[in-house]
Amino acid sequence: MRKILIVGATSTIAEQTARRFAANGDALFLTGRNEARLTAIADDLKVRGASTVATQVMDADDLKAHAPMIDAAEAALGGLDTVLIAYGTLPDQDSCTADPAAAVAAWHTNAVSVIALLTDIGNRFERQGHGTIAAISSVAGDRGRASNYVYGSAKAGLNAFLDGLRHRLFKAGVQVVTIRPGMVDTPMTADFDKGPLFASPEKVGADIHKAIEKGTAVCYTPGFWRLIMTVITSLPRAIFHRTGL
């Protein structure tokens, strides 16, 4: 039985992942910004078989709230062995282009606050000598593109941080899982036209669950995105600059 902390538990992808954990009888500590949604999700996960579900409201942007929240999670579950960082924002690239504050805010949520959380959790897991740390990044981090490079660069920063954390914690027996979803049909992409490349949150949640169970270092989900991103990252600049990506 796992003892799992999910930060950003109201994310659609996180909820689908959590249902898999619940069905295995795992214990869960859920944090997010919206209390009513957290309660609804907690009730659901209990019905689905989770052995314990506790919730706490926290805005991840508030770095000072991190340590007390992790303490509370450890107290509620009697320790932690799995962490999933799921929250994120997809900022409007045009606003980020026009306003430096918007770009910085996007970085704060998608990179800075995650790095703060995982620094603390990494140290705790290193001390206890086991555990799995997973964070949802994005294929957008593989190459900066005009259409969303502020978001993409924050995820790229996160990717490099996770690579380094994995390298460091390898000796301690702690696994670090980088999740790179492609396009997923969730509220984050509500305004997009949904083409055939869009995956369901159920599929992505199932892939994430599997990656955490196996300790996969880098998980593209759905898997075909690894190929797409290989192509996109290897496009010569002269061609890349002519695309509308």
């Binding site: 659609t12 609804a40 999700i41 009730d43 659901d44 019905v47 689905r48």
Partner: peptide, 9 residues
């Protein structure tokens, strides 16, 4: 489709 949570059983 998104209102797919159990409440109690």
């Amino acid at each position: 489709g998104s209102l797919d949570r159990f409440i109690a059983f």
